[in-house]
Design a protein around this nucleic acid. Sequence first.
RNA 1: UCAGUAAAAUGUUCUGUCGCUCCAAAUUUAUUUUGGAGAGGAAAGUCCGGGCAACAUAGAGUAACAUACUUCCUAACAGGAAGGUACAACAUAGUAAUUGUGUUGUAACAGAAAGUGCCUCAGAAAAUAAACUACCCCACCCGAUUUUUAUCGGGAGAGGAAAAGGUGAAAUGGCGGUGUAAGAGACCACCGAUUGAAUGGCAACAUUUAAUGCAAGGCAAACCUUAUGUGUUGUAAAACCAUGUAGGCUUCGAUUUUUGAACGGCUCGUUUAAAUGCUUUGGCUGUCGAAGUGGGUAGGUUGCUAAAGCUAGCAAGUGAUUGCUAUCUAAGAUAAAUGACAGAUAAGUUUCGAUUAUUUCGAAACGAAACAGAACCCGGCUUACUAUUUUACUACAAUA
RNA 2: GGCUGCAUAGCUCAACUGAAUAGAGUACCACACUACGGAUGUGGGGGUUGCAGGUUUGAAUCCUGCUGCGGUCA
Length: 135
Amino acid sequence: MEHPNSFPKSEHLYGEKRIARVFTQGEAFICYPLRVVFLIDKKSDTEPVQVMVSVPKKRFKRAVKRNRIKRLMREAYRLNKESFVQNLIEKQLQIQIAFNYVSDEELDFIAIEKKMKIALQKLIEKIEPLSDLNC
RNA sequence: UCAGUAAAAUGUUCUGUCGCUCCAAAUUUAUUUUGGAGAGGAAAGUCCGGGCAACAUAGAGUAACAUACUUCCUAACAGGAAGGUACAACAUAGUAAUUGUGUUGUAACAGAAAGUGCCUCAGAAAAUAAACUACCCCACCCGAUUUUUAUCGGGAGAGGAAAAGGUGAAAUGGCGGUGUAAGAGACCACCGAUUGAAUGGCAACAUUUAAUGCAAGGCAAACCUUAUGUGUUGUAAAACCAUGUAGGCUUCGAUUUUUGAACGGCUCGUUUAAAUGCUUUGGCUGUCGAAGUGGGUAGGUUGCUAAAGCUAGCAAGUGAUUGCUAUCUAAGAUAAAUGACAGAUAAGUUUCGAUUAUUUCGAAACGAAACAGAACCCGGCUUACUAUUUUACUACAAUA
RNA sequence: GGCUGCAUAGCUCAACUGAAUAGAGUACCACACUACGGAUGUGGGGGUUGCAGGUUUGAAUCCUGCUGCGGUCA
C-alpha cells in the first residue's frame, strides 16, 4: 500500500454471486444523490474493501453520461478512501459496498466529492458499534 | 459584408499532480520500477450484406421472405458509379393547342391485353358498353296563325347518330377543316398513340420511316403474375482448463426379501423377533464400493484483433473501383479501462477604449466545446452534431 | 448482444381489407329532478390518431425513417 490513493482491480466488487449477496443481505442508506448498500464481514482474506459503482439506465439514457458519472464517483471514492480504509484495517473488518446514483440530474465533480465524504463518514459511524461487539 | 438552407471535408494543442487497462523489459517471486500504447465519424440505430463458428443437409417442387429501367463496380448487398426514361420547379424559344432547349431536383422506375378485387359522394354514365336527357328525319293526331301551301307549339310512334350533358381525382385521343337531315376518324392536315422495319447504342432506349382510324381508365406502398435469390442459429457462437460434491446412465465386484419392537445422529442405520418377494444353480429387483460417461451451476483461458488494413506514389477507367510499388502496425476492456483536478495557449466569443462609421489597433475576461463511448471483425445505409473551410441556392442591408 | 410487439379523448378500449363529421364507456361541464346532495335523465365540450416524410383523388389504416414504452432468449 505504497500509493494510498490507488484503486486497482482487486478492490472492485464483481461477480454475480457476490453482488447478489450484497444487495439481498446488506444494509442500505441514502445520502442523496447516493444510495449506499454495504455488507460487513469479519474475516479479511482478500482486500479489506471492495467497491462497485452503478448508474441506472432508466435515469440516463446515453452511455456517455452514465460512464461519466461512474468515473466521477469512482474518482471521488479514490481520493477520499484513505482514512476509511485505515479505520477498517485497525478493526480487522472486511466490507463490500455498492454506490447507486439516484438523482436525475448530472452533478459536477465537486458536488459528488462532497457527498461521497459524507457517505464515508456515515459508514464509519455504522461500523463503530460492530467493532465493539467483536471485541 | 452579414444571415439562412442544402451538400462535402476536417472533427483538434501542450504542461503538471493523482489514478485505470494492456504490452515489453528489469527487479524480485508476487510485488515494485522504467518504457510504450490506449474510442468514433458516426463507436449509435441494428436497417441490409459478407467473413468466421456450430449444427443440419440425396434431388426436385410448394409455401414464406426479399429484390425489380439498363450496364458496370464489389467478397456480397436493398449499397455505389455511369447512363436511359418519366415527373416537378425555374429560365428561355414558340404555338390556336399539344411543345422544344437548358439547369436543378425527385422516382419502391418489371407486368393492369393472365385473373380476382376496389374506385364513397357527385354525375346521364365509373369500366362495358349501352340506357337516359337533349339532337335530326319521316308519317300521324290536336291547337294557334293563315285563303291554301306553310310556319310555330304540344302529344304518341318508327328510325338515324353517338357529337352535346360541366359532375368528378379520373369520362372512351387533341385542335382545325371537309362532310351531313343531324352527326360521327366517315374523310383530310398537323400533333399524339399502337405495330412493323431500318439506323445508332453492349443495353435501357433514341432517331428516321411505313402502316393502322385508334384497338378502350386508374390502383400492384390491394391480392397477385413473371424473373432472380435465400438451410438454421449467432462470438453470451464455439473450443479448452480446473472443480469432480448431490442426483442420472453404463460396466465390474460384493451383497440380496417383508413386517413388528427397542436404541441412536430418527425420510436413515444397528440389534432383535416372526414370516421367508418372483424364480431353475443362476438371474431379476434393491443396497454398498470402484471405474467410466454425458449434462447442469458458477469461474478462468482461447476465440480477440495483421486485416476485403492505413498512408503515399504511379498506372488503367467518364466514374464507382482496380492493379503495382514503397512504407507502417495502430484499443482489446469483461459489474466492463481510456478519467479527475490545476494551469497555459491557437481559432473564436464578450466587454471596454481609440476612431464619424465600417475596417483596424490596444486592453481585459471567458475559452479545447457539439453529437456521442469500442463489446467478434469488415463493407454499406440511416439518424445526431460544434467550429472552420469549400460549393450551390435564397433573402436582406450597405457601397459602386 | 440478438429477436419481437405496442402507441387513438384525462383514463380503459373500438373503428377488420383505405372513403371523408374518428366512436363507446368512464371522467368533466350545464340543465332537469330534490329542501340539499347522491343516483337517474337530457344536452354539451374535449383528438395535430406518438413525430416526420412518401404512395393514393383520399391515410388512424399501406410503406419508410425517427421517438418513447414494453415483452422475450442467453
